[in-house]
Structure formats: structure tokens, C-alpha cells
Simulated scan of single mutants.
Amino acid sequence: MANNNFALVTGGASGMGRLAAQNLAKKGMKVAILDINADGLQETAEGYDNIFAYQVDVTDTDAVFKTVETIVAEHGNLYRVMHAAAIMPYGKILDHDAKDIIRVMDINYGGMVNITKATLPYLLDSNAGEMIVFSSMLGVMPVLATGAYSASKFATSAFVEIMSEEHKNSGITFVCVCPPAVKTPLLQQAKDTIWPKILDENPPISPEEVLEAVEKAVKKGEFWVFPGKGTRIGAVMRRLFPRNIWKHIHKVEGW
């Protein structure tokens, strides 16, 4: 049976995951937070007696499944799953080390597969719940020098969309969040590598704005979430006029 007062949030040691977990905790929900960063997890949970930290590497399939089993055994069945764990190094494909590219896919896509596969059966058992996965606008509209990250997010968007269609009448609300640049530590990770000029056309939005859009989508039962000004239109333009989009990107980048 679903416990609609219990959530699991990945990437809980910082950024979007931290804010999401703390927001839910402030609403009175119990929240299990997962991350590989133990210190960050403790910082997120500090001052909250309803946030419970679990250190785990999302790329470790066995560890993820075991951790989720432990969480359910200790706190009851899940209702909301929010997967926000990711890394975001940028770089031209030729300049980006092959092992690093694969690592991005392992964490951003493989980690998402592990988390959704480990948690979805519990939601299905209850015929209720919310599966919220963070993808990216770069998983809809790619730009130069983001090959590894964009590929991982395209894969994420496709996987979650198909998963939602395969369980259309399950009672579960599936949400795929595709934000533009967001003011979190993840953004600085990208800027520390290479920063495409095209991304400066729109200033980064706040994580609060993203989470507000998520909550609205959940209430309306909407699958795609495009927070920020112009993102939904951008997604449509990408589908209709991809060559025009690429011409503009090349003009801005100068190569």
C-alpha cells in the first residue's frame, strides 16, 4: 500500500535534489535522500528529523536495489520518486576523453535506469505514486560542445517517455523535467569545462522555478515539464526546424 507521505530523492547532497528534499520535508513528508556524497547528504538532512540519508553510488545496480529495499523496509512503501542525480561536464566530442563520455552516460542514464527499475515495482504494487525524472532541454535541443551530456539526457527522455506509455493506466504519474540552465552547483561544473555561448542567450533560472513547474505538472498530470521562458516553444522549434536551429547555433559559436 502506498504511503503518500514518503518520498525518495536522488542527488540529495546538493542543488536541485537538496532543495526538493527540503521542500518536501517542510511540507511534512518523510524523505529518503540518496547520493554518493556523504558529507553533502548530512548537510541536507541537518535540522530535519524527517530526512533520512543513504550513501549510494547510483551506477552500482546491486547497491541501488539493496538500498531501496532497505528504505522501504525501514519507512514503508514509496509514493514519490524524484531522480535528480547527474554530472554535467561539457566538451567537444573529439576533445572529450572516451572514458569520461562513457562515465557521463553511466551516471546520468545508467543511474536513472537503476533508480527507476528499483523503485517502480513499489509504485506499481500500490497502483499509485509519482515518478519524476530530471532530464534537460539539452535532451531535447542539443548544442555544440555538449555531446556527452546531451546524449545522456536524450536517452533519459526517451526511456522515461516509453516507461510512462508502458504504464499508462497504472495510477502512477510520470513526469519528465526538461529545464534550461539552472543556478545550481551542476551549472558551475559545466562552466569549469567549456561553456557554449548559445547558452548565454537566456540567463539561468532558479531551482525554485523548476520545482514550482514540477508541482504544477504533477497536479495537472502532465508528462513533459519545460520550466523557464521560451523552453516549450524551443522544444517545438527543434522538432519543426532543426537545421535552422543549428545554423543559429553555429553563428553564435563562430564555428
Score class of each variant (00 low, 15 high):
Gly171His: 00
Tyr109Ala: 00
Ala128Lys: 07
Asn127Asp: 13
Phe159Gln: 00
Thr116Gly: 13
Ile194Lys: 08
Pro185Asn: 02
Thr116Ala: 14
Thr119Ser: 10
Gly110Ser: 06
Thr184Gly: 10
Tyr122Ser: 13
Glu212Pro: 05
Ile115Pro: 05
Val160Asn: 04
Trp195Lys: 05
Phe134Pro: 12
Val113Lys: 08
Ile194His: 09
Glu212Met: 10
Ser126Pro: 12
Thr156Ser: 03
Tyr109Leu: 01
Gly171Glu: 01
Ala118Asn: 10
Glu208Leu: 13
Val160Ile: 13
Thr146Leu: 05
Gly110Met: 04
Ser170Tyr: 04
Asn202Lys: 15
Ala151Thr: 00
Gly147Trp: 00
Gly110Cys: 07
Lys191Val: 09
Cys178Trp: 08
Phe134Ser: 13
Asp192Tyr: 07
Asn114Ile: 03
Asp192Ala: 12
Thr119Asn: 06
Asp200Asn: 11
Ile198Gly: 01
Ser136Asn: 03
Leu199Ser: 00
Ile162Gln: 14
Gly171Ser: 01
Ile132Trp: 11
Trp195Val: 04
Pro121Arg: 08
Leu120Trp: 09
Glu208Ala: 15
Val177Thr: 09
Val133Trp: 02
Lys117His: 12
Pro185Val: 03
Ile198Tyr: 02
Val175Leu: 04
Leu144Pro: 08
Ser157Leu: 05
Val177Asn: 07
Ile198Trp: 02
Ala213Gly: 03
Phe134Asp: 12
Lys191Ile: 11
Asp125Asn: 14
Val177Ile: 09
Leu211Arg: 11
Ser150Asn: 03
Glu209Ile: 13
Ala148Phe: 00
Lys191Ser: 10
Leu186Trp: 06
Lys117Cys: 10
Met131Arg: 11
Ala118Cys: 11
Ser135Thr: 09
Ala181Met: 14
Val143Ser: 06
